[in-house]
Each structure stands twice: as structure tokens, then as C-alpha cells.
């Protein structure tokens, strides 16, 4: 059976926003830079509130940034 997980495109959208740094994104969302690192590596699934904050900081919709898709 296929396993599903929360996937994200944070790194891709960060690069599209003039190489927004992990530190700047972390500050905008009120989290540590290490959490952004863990999110980009898909080692951590954020709370719904943090997911909305990230999407807003990246100027995208929630569904664009996060998907519930098959594990890598």
C-alpha cells in the first residue's frame, strides 16, 4: 500500500522570491531557522497555523505550498 505524507514546495517558492533566506522566512513566520530547514527536508509537518503563515509569507495559496502526496 502506498504511504502518504505532507509534501511541500517551500524551497522552490523561496527561490522564486528573490532567494528569500531561510532566516528571513523563519522571522516572518515566528519560528526558528532550524524549523524551516526541517520543513524543507520534509522531516517535519507544520501545524495548520504555521502552514497558513508560510503560504502567506511566500505569497501563495496553502494548496500550492503543501500537498498530501505519496512519500518519496
Amino acid at each position: 500500500m502506498n504511504e502518504f505524507a505532507v509534501r511541500n514546495r517551500i524551497r522552490e517558492f523561496r527561490a522564486q522570491r528573490d532567494e528569500l533566506t531561510q532566516a528571513a522566512l523563519a522571522e516572518a513566520c515566528g519560528v526558528t531557522r532550524q524549523t524551516i530547514i526541517a520543513l524543507e527536508a520534509e522531516k517535519y509537518s507544520p501545524s495548520l497555523e504555521l502552514a497558513f503563515k508560510l503560504a502567506r509569507a511566500l505569497g501563495r495559496n496553502l494548496e500550492e505550498v503543501f500537498q498530501y502526496a505519496e512519500k518519496k
Binding site: 515566528g30 519560528v31 526558528t32 532550524q34 524549523t35 501545524s47 504555521l50
Partner: peptide, 9 residues
Amino acid sequence: GTVQLDERD
């Protein structure tokens, strides 16, 4: 000066 503790912690 930076966030020291967040939801992951």
C-alpha cells in the same frame, strides 16, 4: 534576538 522556541521544539 531570534525565535528561540517554536512549535517543533
